[in-house]
């Protein structure tokens, strides 16, 4: 067993884990943050995407011990003080989810996409950039619409970030 300390959704946490523990297991099993999902075992589906020091990573392919000292944001930490993030709002408004299983990873990936590629995202860009996330329910049609709208909304709203809120 080994100790890992990190900040998750603004809270300092320390856990004692088996060295083979993955970040997603730490989140789901030790911290009971079950919003981050596991959809595959080959790093293909993106259901497990979280932000690690502000960048999207697949938490199923990240060893928990490797993130010692890092800051992690999961889907549970995206809304600030009960106010939904514009990307969360956009997914609901545009029916970007059905069963909801891929959704946390989609939203986390989408927020990261905006931070890399800006607020004005056309369909081709979104489709191309989303190739690390699989959804079996929606056919992506409404996810694409949701991301475009969410990106725009993030630009308009002075998006409350966790840092600003703190």
């Amino acid at each position: 067993m080994a100790t890992v300390s990190l900040t998750v959704n603004g809270k300092a946490v320390t856990a004692n884990v088996d060295p083979r523990t993955l970040l997603v297991q730490l989140l789901r099993e030790n911290l009971r943050l079950t919003g981050t999902h596991v959809g595959c075992d080959t790093s293909q589906c993106g259901a497990c995407v979280v932000h690690l020091d502000g960048k999207a990573v697949k938490s199923c392919t990240t060893l928990a011990l490797s993130v010692d000292g890092a800051t992690v944001t999961t889907i549970e930490g995206l809304a600030v003080n009960g106010v939904l993030h514009p990307m969360q709002e956009a997914f609901r408004e545009h029916h970007g989810l059905q069963c909801g299983y891929c959704t946390p990873g989609m939203i986390m990936a989408a927020v990261d996409m905006v931070s890399r590629r800006g607020h004005s995202l056309d369909e081709a860009t979104i489709r191309d950039d989303l190739d690390g996330n699989i959804c079996r329910c929606t056919g992506y049609h409404n996810i694409v619409k949701a991301i475009a709208a969410g990106a725009e909304a993030m630009g308009k709203a002075a998006t409350p970030t966790r840092k600003a809120a703190e």
Binding site: R28, T34, T36, I75, L84, F91, L97, G100, P104, I107
Partner: peptide
């Protein structure tokens, strides 16, 4: 109508079988 179930899914509060312990 926008979906009533969505709030829990977009905030990571869905409750799937593997979330049950």
């Amino acid at each position: 109508v926008r979906r009533k179930e969505d709030h829990r899914f977009i905030t990571g509060q869905g409750r799937y079988t593997d979330d049950i312990n």
